[in-house]
């Protein structure tokens, strides 16, 4: 289970508020995961295209896609879909989002 992201966000906000121009501690940033949780990554990146109500990319929710497959598509890109380097989405985050997607119900079949 990824750690809850709520606390991290609170701390990040506090840092940003109190120390606007100071470095928000590189060491601190390193100990957090890149996207906090699979849910967050989905909402901030993947879901902007893949959420069923958007319809740019195919629906991913509840399809039990294997992590290796997701990673391969993200790293290589796939036709209309762009690729993402690890600096943008790291392997850990891909594992988290894969797990998150598998917990979502598959959308109802369209008539």
């Amino acid at each position: 289970m990824p750690r809850p992201s709520r606390n991290k966000n609170a701390i990040r906000l506090m840092l940003a508020g109190v120390l606007p121009l100071a470095c928000a501690s590189a060491a601190y940033a390193q100990e957090q995961s890149q996207w906090g949780s699979g849910k967050n990554l989905y909402e901030k990146v993947c879901g902007h295209c893949h959420a069923p109500e958007v319809g740019v990319g195919t629906v991913l929710a509840g399809r039990d896609l294997p992590e290796a497959y997701v990673r391969s598509i993200v790293r290589n890109g796939f036709n209309a879909m762009p690729s993402f380097p690890a600096s943008y989405i790291d392997d850990e985050s891909i594992a988290q989002v894969t797990e998150y997607l598998s917990t979502l119900p598959a959308p109802a079949a369209q008539p």
Partner: peptide
């Protein structure tokens, strides 16, 4: 307000 809806353009013919 961010969204990526316009990426639908890349599906008109598809293929990247």
């Amino acid at each position: 307000v961010p969204n990526l809806q316009e990426f639908g353009l890349y599906n008109w013919r598809g293929g990247g």
